[in-house]
Design a protein around this nucleic acid. Structure first.
Lengths: 235, 235
DNA sequence: TGACAATGACTGACCAGTCAGTCATAAATG
DNA sequence: CATTTATGACTGACTGGTCAGTCATTGTCA
């Protein structure tokens, strides 16, 4: 009963339900004057994103229930659909949203002008270990590795925004090191991946094996840098 | 092995149907006629494992449908339950079954007695790239990384059988290299992970980014070894 | 009050797991 | 060896539960 109503006139959708475009956020907001309504909406959206991130990281895409996300965000399930088209695009948008702070967190380190290349890389490593590998951002990376093959757009985005940029930057750093005579191995510039390999190890280890055997990721990174730059001074 | 006993009862089915029994179906085995019962059963079990591996690798645990596995294996869904308790234990058993050949594949390389440590490691790398990183076994590793957190038993097993053993062996190799004077960096023995880091990079890259930019994994590995053992002779 | 935000009960599709029934094969019998 | 009977591997329609997505209703702000 009451189901044949489905075919009956369904309200008037002259206007697309809502376009998240409005919530573009985009760094500094100035267009709309601070409205109680808009503020609350943004707040809710943030809560949903936060909750969804936790759930997706914990269970993966397929096994995550929107009911759980809603409950965790303190919102009704329908509300999610006021902000996102469906589960899939929500996931994609989520990852994209979360990657931005990941990047800025990594390249936001103060680039000391007088520092050696080794110092710069070590600073990067330190930041990475502290801000990524040991936080939820690290799980985000693992999530991308896990779901990437099923979400080519996510993998593409991650490649463009993180991998490609990161490797380019790292290559420049390596070439600077070679030019300065800090790095002897010229071939290293051909494979900047090598420089960040311990970072990936750290992320994976952290979420899979840290309970079996803790890993001092920063120290491992330093030993790795010793291979590249030569032994450190201090014993 | 060890399946549930099938009940029996007498009833009359409303519909006959069912006669595909003889149709071994396309692909693969045709010439070798079905032998005895046990052989056919083992064959079927193998087909299920094979199909399940492909499906799980392609879609992950949660998104994989048993109907698809059955179809791919050329078997009815019920047959799966003659061999496995449920989806979850099937997944676990599957991984465990598949890891064994992974190990033997890696440590099965002929340990040339007269070879240098570098040669041994390079041989290992070559085997890994050819036999794991560029094959379905590589996706298996990615699958474990992806599902590990949700299947602690799988992660534990993988740690015990692959990671722990592998690192121990690698550490021994590193210490040998240090003793022989091939390796200068004594600290490397503290982090055997560094030695295999490019292998992990290769696996991830292969399944996520190879279509964006191909990676010569073996050459990368060699450059990495140059860092550890010193530059190679040939340019 | 009118417009829009939020809700959560509901629907329909989907899917893991079941089980009554079938039939090829093995075992028993003559 | 030919025939009958017993076995259990295999099947696939079916069930019960789950969950993404919907929408009529209710709540809230301007």
């Amino acid at each position: 009963m009451t189901n044949e109503a489905t075919k009956t006139a369904r309200k008037s959708p002259p206007k697309p339900a809502n376009r998240r475009a409005g919530a573009r956020v985009s760094a500094s907001s100035k267009p709309p004057p601070p409205s109680n309504r808009a503020e609350r909406a943004a707040e809710r959206r943030g809560a949903i994103i936060e909750a969804a991130m936790d759930e997706f990281i914990a269970r993966g895409f397929a096994a995550t229930r929107l009911d759980d996300i809603a409950k965790r965000a303190g919102v009704a399930k329908g509300t999610i659909y006021l902000h996102f088209k469906d589960k899939e695009s929500m996931f994609e948008e989520l990852i994209r949203t979360a990657i931005v702070p990941l990047i800025s967190r990594l390249w936001g380190t103060p680039p000391q002008p007088g520092a050696s290349v080794r110092d710069m890389v070590e600073g990067f490593a330190k930041t990475f270990i502290e801000e990524v590998a040991t936080t939820r951002r690290g799980d985000l990376v693992r999530l991308i590795v896990a779901e990437g093959p099923r979400f080519p757009e996510v993998a593409d985005f991650y490649y463009r925004e993180v991998v490609s940029r990161g490797l380019t930057g790292m290559r420049a750093l390596i070439e600077l090191g070679i030019a300065r005579g800090e790095i002897q191995h010229k071939n290293l510039a051909r494979f900047p991946q090598i420089m960040v390999a311990p970072a990936l190890i750290a992320v994976i280890w952290q979420s899979l094996f840290s309970k079996h055997a803790p890993l001092d990721a920063l120290e491992m990174f330093r030993v790795h840098l010793d291979l590249i730059f030569g032994e450190r001074k201090t014993a």
